[in-house]
């Protein structure tokens, strides 16, 4: 058992380690030394933006036995390996990068796709039953339902298309803004090749994946393709997925959805993904199936 005095001194020691300790100061100076200062000539010297660094190319191990081999291994993963340490902890640059990436992920969830963006890309705005981000995050059930007026608007605006394309904010607004301008024309071009025209692309605010089922029922489209922001992680906040289903219906099994995930600049590039999605949609129309049924 640790008594109170011991505990106090233990905490004091830990705190001393965390702030203002002499060693820590030394570490910081070292780290700054290792980072290159850019614009030394500027009046106000500024530090490099740590989020600009490609994590796959950043090796912090001071004297690696086989540097090339290490970097080759790092090329294959965005995991934070080869980050070295300061005592038992991460180095400052690693801690800061971690927090910066985490902040970017949170921002992606809590920010909104701007109205200008929706307008600029010619998307038609819709909204689920959610009224705020907080409600969206805490009530997944509402993110998949629409008011009667919204459903009527869908019917009025979209008619009965062969393919209904839908853009949903999902859990990353950043993903939508980063990828949409490249993926939409690629999908449209690909489908045009098969003689399918895409009109009236919808934008759904506070969108969960099953919202596409309601859209499918309302528009009676053969195929609904939902481009939605993925839950952001520490690797990227800009990853997007396409959920595609043949004649989706409310409460259908999840196995009927075909998914193309990991669409971002470090994964499948949006243009190439768009071309692939167009082909997947064409295949669905030919085989009248999606998800697991499409594979059989």
């Amino acid at each position: 058992m640790v008594n109170e005095t011991e505990l106090k001194s233990l905490i004091a020691n830990i705190l001393k380690d965390m702030v203002g300790d002499e060693k820590e100061e030394k570490q910081k100076i070292e780290v700054q030394g290792a980072e290159q200062l850019v614009c030394l000539d500027c009046e106000e010297a500024c530090l490099e933006d740590i989020t600009e660094f490609d994590i796959k190319k950043q090796l912090l191990v001071p004297e690696p036995e086989d540097k090339e081999g290490y970097l080759k291994m790092k090329e294959k993963t965005p995991a934070r390996i080869g980050v070295w340490r300061a005592g038992p902890r991460y180095k400052t640059v690693t801690s800061l990068r971690f927090r910066a990436d985490h902040a970017a992920a949170q921002d992606a969830v809590f920010s909104h796709v701007s109205e200008e963006f929706v307008e600029k890309n010619g998307l038609i705005p819709f909204q689920t039953l959610c009224q705020s981000k907080d409600e969206y995050l805490t009530r997944p059930d509402l993110g998949r339902q629409f008011s009667d007026e919204m459903v009527q608007k869908m019917k009025d605006v979209c008619g009965k298309p062969t393919v209904q394309l839908v853009v949903g904010d999902g859990l990353s607004s950043a993903a939508i803004e980063a990828n949409m301008e490249d993926i939409l024309p690629a999908i449209k071009q690909g489908l045009k090749m098969y003689g399918i025209d895409i009109n009236n692309i919808m934008f759904v605010k506070y969108c969960r994946v099953p919202a596409m089922d309601v859209i499918g029922e309302a528009t009676d489209a053969d195929v609904v393709c939902l481009l939605v922001g993925e839950r952001p992680g520490l690797v990227t906040a800009e990853s997007m997925s396409a959920y595609i289903a043949y004649k989706p219906t409310v409460d259908m099994p999840e196995a009927r959805r075909t998914v193309v995930s990991n669409i971002h600049k470090g994964g499948t590039s949006p243009v190439e993904a768009g071309a692939h999605i167009a082909e997947v949609i064409k295949k669905m129309i030919d085989k009248k199936a999606s998800g697991i049924d499409l594979k059989n």
């Binding site: 690629a186 071009q189 690909g190 090749m193 243009v271 190439e272 768009g274 071309a275 692939h276 082909e279």
Partner: peptide, 13 residues
């Protein structure tokens, strides 16, 4: 680089 599908479709188009 991984661009052949979209490039091919663009050429067709």
């Amino acid at each position: 680089q991984d661009i052949a599908k979209v490039l091919g479709q663009t050429i067709y188009a």
